[in-house]
Write a protein that binds this DNA or RNA. Structure first.
Lengths: 236, 236
DNA sequence: TATCAGTTTATGGTATACACAATGCTCACA
DNA sequence: TGTGAGCATTGTGTATACCATAAACTGATA
């Protein structure tokens, strides 16, 4: 997984750098690039059928975003976040998401609510066929969609990046994710969605908070207290 | 302003890319790189005494952060934000900063409060000698310091980036910034600081909200209703 | 088995080349 | 004097080749 950059990719991203950035990020979040092995520039360039130059620039950005981390002169590795870092990300989202849900209930346009619905449906379909990566991706789209509907691109992107990093962590536990977890999450998404459609800001914010707590609990159930400290201390 | 990368710069940033990133960002926020003229890679490389490659990588990151924006095959330009974008940034910070101030009042360590105090003092000194760029920089350090004291690096960095973009905008109006404005802002910072030191989370949050509203008002007074729409529609 | 030297690998950086796009300039022409 | 076509210039976006460095691997030797 990490196919050559074709015409289609270039239509969405004007430059090779951008296309490579998206392709590599996708591959990381799909789990196609396993987090143990290093990302070798030349290999990536070969896979994408481009030269090292735009690959390096894409990697520089991904590094800055905290998805990959360099070990000096040893290579770039997909980040292994610690539990503490993930909890920090949860906290960050808790500060922001209820705020966004509230505003989304105020401002969401019809097209935006349609986008939310389709993200939920996508998530549901992925859950049923046990496609973890797809389920997580749909979740990111849903949360980012709320941000957009709230009319604040800055916060929307912030949440999206946080979700990406959380999902990256969760992919490491994907064997432990079961269908029921995903279904629960989807139900909560749908509840938030309904509150937004019904223009009920208080409910949207409340349900958003509930969802985040619920996610935290599922996270604790997944990760538990096991002190698997194989995580590299890589705080980009 | 944009001196060659020396030993000192390399000590703080391990690679040329990182050093270039910091140097260029500094120059932009100092106002040394005027926002009208393009940032020419080769010129920057020459000034920093390095080759184009690390400069390009640094620029790719700055572009991704929304401080500079490319015009396809015409060059990179320092972003000119619109009023609407700045207001979006204010809103984002309003969602986050009271949250951080509250937590900082809980968790701030002695070293962290010392850092806050020194940032405030720096801001005061800059205000008296009418050093706008320095005053803004001190403000960024103060706000980022609260984020760090709150124990959430993710949110701290988010606020810091937002402040950077706001300050970039404000530098465009630096002729209109007067000492009294800066003094007012500094007083508000000091009030937040006191609440944090006195371990009064409610007061810290309240004063943080007050400060943000006050900043917004000063912003409106500065920018007013004048429809100077010379701003490029550059939303990175 | 343990150690040490040589080989391999891949980054971080330099340098160069070139297509393409946009801009500016020149100069002929009206 | 004013206009416009064509050319030169500029600078990005990408490719390519090369090097120093440092870590990892390999294998020979004691």
């Amino acid at each position: 997984m990490l196919t050559p950059i074709d015409q289609l990719a270039l239509e969405r991203a004007p430059t090779f750098r951008e296309a490579a950035y998206h392709a590599i990020k996708q591959a990381i979040l799909n789990g196609s690039l396993e987090s143990g092995q290093p990302l070798v520039e030349e290999r990536l360039a070969e896979m994408l059928q481009i030269s090292r130059t735009p690959v390096r620039e894409a990697l520089a950005i991904l590094e800055h975003e905290g998805l990959i981390a360099p070990v000096y002169r040893r290579g770039l590795f997909v980040c292994k976040l610690t539990r503490e870092q993930v909890i920090e990300l949860f906290t960050a989202n808790e500060a922001v998401e209820p705020f966004l849900a509230r505003r989304a209930a105020h401002y969401a346009s019809p097209e935006q609510t349609v986008a939310l619905e389709s993200a939920i449906r996508d998530g549901e379909a992925c859950a049923e066929r046990n496609d973890i990566a797809g389920f997580l991706r749909a979740g990111r789209i849903f949360h980012a969609g709320i941000g957009r509907a709230a009319g604040n691109l800055t916060l929307a992107r912030f949440v999206e990046r946080n979700e990406e990093r959380v999902d990256l962590f969760l992919m490491g536990y994907r064997k432990a994710v079961d269908v029921e977890m995903m279904r629960t999450s989807n139900r909560e998404h749908r509840a938030i969605y309904r509150a937004i459609v019904q223009r009920d800001p208080d409910a949207a914010a409340r349900l958003s908070i509930y969802h985040l707590q619920s996610v935290r609990e599922r996270f604790a159930a997944l990760v538990g207290d096991d002190d698997r400290d194989d995580a590299l201390p890589l705080d980009n």
